[in-house]
Design a protein around this nucleic acid. Structure first.
Lengths: 219, 219
DNA sequence: ATTTTGTCTTTGACGACTCAAAGAGTTTAT
DNA sequence: ATAAACTCTTTGAGTCGTCAAAGACAAAAT
């Protein structure tokens, strides 16, 4: 049974292996996990020895089917727990990511099944991130249109928030841009790097990089 | 912040320091925690250095106020989680102890507050163990009468089960001796070591050591 | 083609937790 | 009172996850 450290490594690799080959550099992992590059090399070697991933020295790392399956299970746990914390325990939207970060390693499959059932087998968590089911290799990230890339003036619906940091989520909450909200891009100015949107509660303004973290759908 | 290992040591000491002085031998801890005596000595020294307990070599160990407070917080977490798993997640009575053993180290105080509120601030967990509140030094164990020590023929009510092992809990469940159940000792035979009880569902028989694990109250 | 720069790996070390086995202290028995 | 038995501590060692610093490699610049 992998330790929670190993589970965090698996998750970090999975989330960052979006391209076809699914290779992640050890440097990117060091950055993501907040440890030194040497630590990554050491851990990666031991995980490779355990069959969780393959390591091409100086190239990068790729999950094996087993590693990938385990990583997906952890992500599933994380997202179901987040959903549970919001819907059942009524916790604040911007706190649950941090809480789930700890709980995902402590919750058994038995408990997870109960949670999943109580929630009615949800397809997405409170940030709009899809919840992988027990077998599907789902994990699309940033495939869709965002507030930075959509056509202006169209009626949109917020689908997903691609940044779980507390300050960003707080801004989202304050401005009413949470998943499900209706929104329309009134004006986007490449020169000033500003996006101005209309929504029910009024108007809001944000920078282009921030707008790129809000996935939307024409509605 | 203590690691979960340290929290388990604290809990083990608290639960075993029932007498006045509150001293626990390192041998008893080794037994309880399933590690070798040498390991206990080492850990105990480092915990003493951190101010969580006092260690009289070859005498035993006693929690400091700080250690005791932390131990109580862990026990509170454990018992609230157990109650939550049974009442909200509808989990099986005999599974929740094991689950809570992991969750008690991962759940934040924020989440605990929500759980406590949803449950309506319960005073006891599903086994009848009292849930310490944030300040009270409550932790009586085995103070009351048990099926092995009560007067026969009296109408009793099961208060508390003093053994969380799955096989024992299964027996309790099967025979209907769960907390709250009405029961009467029909006959107790010291020679054969057998206690025979009547309850609504019929009759049940158990050994004296087992009967001593069932705390009751005259009703 | 060399050098520089940047990234990745190796090496030596440490803290937390653990064991096995040897040593020391205390209690009990004879 | 001395030995035997029991309990506790010490010592040496191992695993896991980590760092700092030194070394190796590859890509980019001159």
């Amino acid at each position: 049974m992998p330790t929670s450290t190993v589970e965090n490594y698996l998750k970090a690799i999975l989330v960052r292996s979006s391209d076809e080959v699914g290779v992640v550099s050890t440097g990117a992992l060091a950055e993501a996990l907040g440890v030194t590059p040497g630590t990554i090399t050491t851990m990666v070697k031991s995980m490779a020895a355990r069959g969780l991933l393959e390591h091409q020295p100086r190239e990068g790392v790729r999950l094996t089917p087993e590693g990938r399956a385990h990583a997906l299970a952890v992500v599933r746990k994380h997202r179901l727990v987040e959903t549970f914390l919001v819907q059942v325990l009524q916790m604040d939207w911007k706190e649950v990511h941090q809480e789930a970060e700890a709980l995902e390693h402590a919750i058994s499959d038995r408990v997870l099944l109960k949670i999943d059932a109580i929630l009615g087998h949800p397809a997405a968590d409170p940030h709009g991130d899809p919840i992988p089911s027990r077998k599907s290799p789902v994990l699309g990230r940033g495939k869709g249109v965002t507030l930075a890339s959509c056509e202006p003036q169209k009626q949109l619906r917020v689908e997903r928030i691609l940044d779980q940091s507390a300050p960003f989520l707080e801004f989202i909450q304050k401005s009413g841009l949470m998943p499900g909200a209706r929104v329309r891009v009134r004006e986007r100015d490449r020169a000033s790097g500003v996006v101005r949107c209309d929504l029910k509660e009024g108007e809001t303004t944000l920078g282009l990089p921030e707008a790129a973290k809000i996935e939307v759908k024409v509605s």
